[in-house]
Each structure stands twice: as structure tokens, then as C-alpha cells.
Amino acid sequence: MMMHATIKFSPSNIATLKKALRNQYPKIRSSHADEALAASFGFKSYAAMLAVLNQVSGSARLMVQSDPCLLLLRLDQLGYSGLSLQALRRLTWEVPYPDRWQDDELQQALNGRFAPVAANSDAVPS
């Protein structure tokens, strides 16, 4: 089972995801895409998401998961029926997000933490 896409919560990533959604489904209005994307991140409205986005975008590294089921549900509520859950899930995974959640330092730390310890090593796994 495919997990939800985890992205860095930044204005550029949200804008890129919105653009990809509207490219795939051109009939979705801009404001509806905003509301649906906010719902996919667990917010009740775009205004609520925007308040948090503006608050944390410059100072924190906040990761969010996009739930394609919530995205599909909100789009359906807004009148866009017949959309494919699998296509929406694929979309959230395949978007080339400009603001990657792993920088080189974080990626190296993760790689080091999960690297197997050699059998003949004196190192103790942490």
C-alpha cells in the first residue's frame, strides 16, 4: 500500500502542487484547488492553511502529508465527481517539488542512522 506523500510545507511546494493539479484537471477552479489542497493537509479551509503557512514558511521546517482521499472528498464536495483516487495519489507523489524536504545535511544524517553496521566493526548501533 502506498503511503501519503510527505512534503515540506512551503509556499513554493503548495503552489507547485496546485499547478500540477490544475494542469491534470483544467476544469478545477483556482479557489477550489486551494480549498481541496488545504483539506488534503487536514485544514478546514484554505484561509486556515494560509495562516499557518505564512507563520512557519520562513523559520521552520514543517513536513506535512497530503492525503489524496481528503483531496478527492473535498473536490467531490465542490462538484468535481468522477476523479480517480489513484491518479490523485500518483500526482501528489510525482510532482517535482522545488523545496525538497531533505537537504544534504539531513539526508546524510538519515543515511548514517539507517546504514547497517559492519559485522566486524566495533561500533554499537545507536
Rank of each mutant, 00 (worst) to 15 (best):
V124Y: 10
W93D: 12
W93V: 08
V52P: 06
A51Y: 05
R113V: 00
L75F: 01
Q65V: 09
D122N: 09
A15G: 06
L73W: 09
A119S: 07
P96W: 07
Y80V: 00
W101L: 15
R22H: 01
A115G: 06
F41D: 03
Y80E: 01
A36F: 12
R22F: 01
Q107T: 08
E105S: 09
L78V: 07
S12D: 11
P68T: 02
Y25P: 15
L106Y: 14
H4E: 15
L83M: 15
A119F: 04
P96L: 07
L70Q: 15
I7V: 12
S30P: 01
A87E: 14
F9S: 01
L85S: 05
P96H: 10
Y25F: 15
L72Q: 15
A123P: 07
F9L: 02
G82T: 11
P68G: 06
L71A: 10
E35N: 12
A115Q: 13
A51L: 07
A15Y: 07
W93P: 08
M2V: 05
Y46N: 12
S66R: 03
A60W: 11
V124N: 11
S126H: 03
E94M: 13
L75T: 00
Q102R: 10
Y25M: 08
N23D: 13
L50N: 12
L83G: 13
L17H: 06
L91E: 05
S12N: 10
Y97G: 04
D76C: 10
T6I: 14
L83D: 14
Q55T: 00
G79V: 07
K44N: 12
D104E: 15
L106V: 13
P125R: 00
L91C: 06
R89E: 04
P68E: 06
D103T: 05
R100L: 06
A20L: 03
L75I: 00
G112R: 05
R29C: 07
K18L: 01
Y25E: 11
Y80R: 01
Q107M: 12
A123S: 14
T16D: 03
P116M: 01
M3F: 09
D67N: 12
L88S: 11
A118S: 10
L70E: 14
I14P: 02
L62M: 15
D99S: 15
L106W: 13
L91H: 08
A123N: 12
N54V: 04
R89M: 02
G112T: 03
F114K: 02
M2P: 10
F41Y: 13
I14L: 11
R113C: 01
Q86E: 11
P98N: 09
A38D: 00
L72T: 15
D122K: 10
W93Q: 13
F9A: 01
E35H: 10
M49D: 08
D76E: 14
A47P: 13
L110A: 06
P116K: 06
L85P: 09
V56K: 00
R74G: 04
R100G: 03
E105H: 08
N111L: 14
